[in-house]
Design a protein around this nucleic acid. Structure first.
Lengths: 168, 168
DNA sequence: CGTGAAACATTAGCGGC
DNA sequence: GCCGCTAATGTTTCACG
């Protein structure tokens, strides 16, 4: 269920790829002192085992006009009748399930975690400006039947932001 | 300073690349109904303009044994003497500058923002387990001369997590 | 923007340690 | 088992129409 066997070379390959996912297999092979074939076999194995989830291009939010980053704490309704989630299927759903499905559908929510503490969920929200944020909170979040309360903090400045995990 | 001119094709290329950063230029060209050369020219232009910041492999934190994700709110000392940051240079530094430099050096901190609200910074921290987290808070954060107070919430479950930005 | 050709990269099969 | 060679195939890249 958890990790597969990995040796030091596998970990070096991961460290290289999570910094630059477009290096050629040849280049990676050179850096880990292997010939291209075994290196590629290792990479494929790491991909198939799920340690490597995927490859993406990282975009600059500001240059795309997404100047506002907000962290929104959300508290959900926990009691009361579950909802009819789908008019067609008439499947009964809990508030949590309904909220999670909505989160998946909102593109401005780039991350969402169930959290310890007073609030239930923490949302990371990226939008163009305060007007868009206000519309998102009013029209989507507060309008959502499962949401009781929201508390927002805004990012003033990003000090650090990396997708690279600390590999020991 | 902000974005460059982008047409609908550029935006489609960005949308494709932020989902799969390893697609071949030929494949992308096909999907946007272009031949490989102009498609590659557009991609290079997006890279050089900084809209595309880079390409990375995304790794599975759990399969790497990083089972704990915490959001740590940090409050900093604001008054009092600035510190001697470097014994060699004897450069005076503010508490904020000193803290930011430390954050860059801590690999378990995968994100850090200066925030509105009562606390000054929000840290996203990835570690193996509670023992590691405890050591990080005790030995690094609370031991840091600029840190006054920390408040932590733990992620119970990740509902959504994407590096893909909402491109309108 | 598209074509074509050279340079380069990926990948499967096979033999050796 | 895991490595490295080779050779075929596919991809990137650039000068030019």
């Amino acid at each position: 269920m958890t990790g597969i066997d990995m040796d030091a070379i596998d970990r070096r390959i991961l460290a290289i790829l999570q910094e630059n996912g477009r290096l050629s297999n040849q280049e990676i092979a050179e850096r880990v002192n292997l010939s291209p074939s075994p290196c590629l076999r290792r990479i494929r194995r790491l991909e198939e085992s799920g340690v490597i989830c995927g490859y993406v291009a990282l975009l600059d939010a500001q240059r795309l006009g997404l100047d506002l980053l907000a962290y929104v704490n959300v508290r959900l309704e926990k009691r009361g009748v579950p909802l009819e989630s789908s008019a067609a299927l008439r499947v009964r759903t809990t508030h949590a399930e309904f909220f999670r499905a909505s989160v998946q559908a909102w593109p401005e929510v780039v991350a969402c975690h169930a959290m310890t503490g007073e609030m239930d969920y923490l949302l990371r929200v990226r939008v163009e400006d305060m007007a868009h944020f206000s519309r998102f909170v009013q029209d989507q979040l507060l309008h959502h039947p499962s949401v009781i309360d929201v508390k927002t903090s805004f990012s003033l400045e990003t000090i650090k932001e990396t997708t690279a995990l600390p590999i020991r």
